[in-house]
Design a protein around this nucleic acid. Sequence first.
DNA 1: CTTGACTCTATACTATGGTACCGGGTCTAT
DNA 2: ATAGACCCGGTACCATAGTATAGAGTCAAG
Lengths: 134, 134
Amino acid sequence: MTIGEVAARAKVNIQTVRYYERRGLLVTPRRSAGGYRQFSDDVVPRIRFIKRAQELGFTLEEIAELLALRVRHGEACDDVRRRALAKITLVEQKSRELENLKRALEGLVQACERRAPTAECPILEALEEPLSDA
Amino acid sequence: MTIGEVAARAKVNIQTVRYYERRGLLVTPRRSAGGYRQFSDDVVPRIRFIKRAQELGFTLEEIAELLALRVRHGEACDDVRRRALAKITLVEQKSRELENLKRALEGLVQACERRAPTAECPILEALEEPLSDA
DNA sequence: CTTGACTCTATACTATGGTACCGGGTCTAT
DNA sequence: ATAGACCCGGTACCATAGTATAGAGTCAAG
């Protein structure tokens, strides 16, 4: 697969594919005699993974670490395990942050629905108070 | 209030106050004879509002819109409420994806403990559903 | 064997949300 | 009236995550 095909299938810019390769997020592709990148099909789901992980609030650096987690024969299993556990902690932390966010937003919406018809928007008023533990 | 006082009270950088003013997030302050900004006390809660809204996942541009909505209250509340609900939907989707990712990572840890090499990277399969953007 | 679409590297530029620095002016207490 | 703290606008810079462009080379169909 050429880079253009990869970009089209993964729905990203060609430049983005090259950028991800530079950032070490993609397996370095083979090259044709003329120097064209020849990607395997795996790269498309991988790019989609990257995009989704980004939406979840992971930076490209964190995503690179996630992608580096793999159990292979002969490799230091303990190391992989340790890093995976660290990532689980990170994911749990992100989950908690999202929970806080959701509760805060829901509280605001509910305040909005309880409001007297003539009152000011309570969402905006509530934002003037500190968020509970977000 | 001088800009330094505002920054100290709102716990942001002086540059940030000027930046927010440039971005149209603050009411343009009066000036002293010598050109110093003279802020009214309102600006401190407003900066706190901005900071909190950011924590809720709003961009500065969205926050500028929220602040503009506040002026003409009434039907503005519904508008603000709708935006908050949209954010909640997004947050819920992200939570589900994080759960998937966590499960995938846990599977990886378990594979490690069994010292079984993973044929395919299960992490890549963890984020299969695209997030619809808000 | 040429033409046009595609790709190459390298560099520069964009947006977002700030932060830092510069040479100067202002404010205030002594 | 002068030191020192503060502020001014302007510009440059930071990180992150790309996107655009230039000038050259490659690939494949006709």
